[in-house]
């Protein structure tokens, strides 16, 4: 990443964080949910990985083609493909 794009990213980060904090504090984004209000959150598509088997196959492909890996969890097993 070039020096210019780094400073551009830094310039962008601060307003984004400020916007994020403002939305959180005004309740636009964060609103506590009661147990009886969690019907939508309980749907299977709302899980972080709705289909772990599919995720494991996808991650294996990305792991074999890119240097970056991990982040979503720990474990998963090694492989000689990279």
């Amino acid at each position: 990443m070039s020096f210019q794009s780094k400073s551009a990213a830094r310039r962008l980060l601060l307003p984004l964080l400020a916007l994020w904090a403002a939305l959180l504090s005004t309740g636009c984004l964060y609103a506590p949910v009661q147990p009886w209000e969690r019907d939508l959150l309980a749907e299977p598509e709302m899980l972080p990985a709705p289909d772990p088997l599919e995720t494991s196959l996808d991650e294996h492909v990305y792991f074999s083609k890119e240097t970056a890996h991990g982040g979503a969890g720990v474990g998963g097993g090694g492989c000689g493909c990279n």
Partner: peptide
């Protein structure tokens, strides 16, 4: 950290070291 933000939004932030 996984947080229920509101009735429709689930957010997760992880920091990993390897």
């Amino acid at each position: 950290w996984t947080q229920i933000m509101n009735r429709r939004w689930l957010s997760q932030v992880n920091v990993g070291l390897g």
